[in-house]
């Protein structure tokens, strides 16, 4: 995908670390940033897509294998980047996993898995990189939230919980970071990319129905990445996707949460009808 000219100018010479760049929105963001003039460090667990990012631009793209929940490994990676480049200008926290299922079927291990990647991973990234940004007095952080942090979502409680964490973190951090010249942006996609909804991640219900029910829209990760990058370069604080529908649900949850009840009941019904024997 082509990077818009305005995006290019503002990213020239920047060093950006992207977590979760092996799939979904993270991968799409990394692909869009590949030839933007920025030096990027896409991080993820081992994956073909991750390695293929550096094809043709191995000078500026450095795929890094990293388990973001492993703090010591993260420290090593951050130290290496700072030793080599001298700074990290941008941090994109795109890593995320989900588990879909009724409360009765979601076990302790599922909760720990989801909170481990979405919460601990993000905290590790911010705890290690944000202080270096504060010290330099500049930097950009993009957190991947979701509108379900505010609306809640039946059948995706661990994911909603982890995104709630990101929302609270974002709101508080934003007020602080502006004092230190660091800008913090929150992306609020209103849909699950297909990568998030792999079959093994759905513990109850029929995957096709669940996927249909849990998406505000059917679109590609590339389109989301495009909207996010544009918003980021314009200095937006919250980036909704799809821009109108997601914002509409967000406001609804904010002002009249009870209006979302019928929607949630429908989700719940979907699980019950399609419950696998």
């Amino acid at each position: 995908m082509k990077t818009p000219a305005k995006t290019k100018a503002s990213l020239l010479g920047e060093v950006i670390l992207i977590t979760g760049a092996g799939s979904g929105i993270g991968l799409a963001l990394a692909r869009s940033l590949r030839k933007s003039g920025a030096t990027i460090y896409p991080c993820d667990l081992e994956g073909e897509d991750l390695q293929s990012l550096s094809e043709g631009c191995s000078e500026t793209v450095h795929p890094t294998v990293l388990d973001i929940t492993d703090r010591l490994a993260f420290i090593r990676v951050v130290d290496e980047i700072i030793a080599k480049e001298g700074k990290i200008d941008g941090l994109i926290n795109a890593a995320g996993i989900t588990v879909i299922g009724k409360a009765a079927d979601i076990r302790v291990k599922h909760w720990h898995e989801v909170l481990g990647v979405n919460v601990t991973g993000t905290v590790n990234a911010i705890e290690l990189i944000y202080p270096t940004m504060v010290a330099r007095g500049s930097g950009k952080i993009l957190n991947m939230g979701s509108i379900i942090a505010e609306t809640g979502e039946v059948g995706a409680a661990p994911f909603a919980t982890s995104k709630g964490f990101i929302l609270g973190l974002h709101r508080s951090l934003q007020a602080e970071a502006s004092h230190h010249g660091v800008s913090v942006t929150l992306a609020l996609p209103g849909y699950f990319p297909p990568d998030l909804l792999q079959r093994k991640r759905i513990v109850t219900g029929d995957p096709a129905t669940v996927t249909r029910a849990h998406s505000l829209c059917q679109s590609s990760a590339l389109m989301v990445a495009d909207v996010i990058l544009k918003g980021l370069c314009r200095g937006k604080k919250n980036i909704f996707y799809p821009p109108f529908k997601a914002r509409y649900y967000w406001l609804l949850a904010h002002w009249f949460p009870f209006l979302l009840t019928p929607l949630q009941k429908r989700f719940l019904k979907g699980f019950e009808v399609n419950r696998e024997p």
Binding site: G152, A160, G164, L167, S172, E176
Partner: peptide, 24 residues
């Protein structure tokens, strides 16, 4: 949001989201 008490605020917002998701 709650600047200067970010971890606290983040965990409490998460609990709110969990409550909303599981309430139905």
């Amino acid at each position: 949001g709650y600047p200067m008490a970010t971890p606290y605020c983040a965990t409490k917002t998460a609990i709110h989201a969990a409550w909303r998701s599981l309430l139905p």
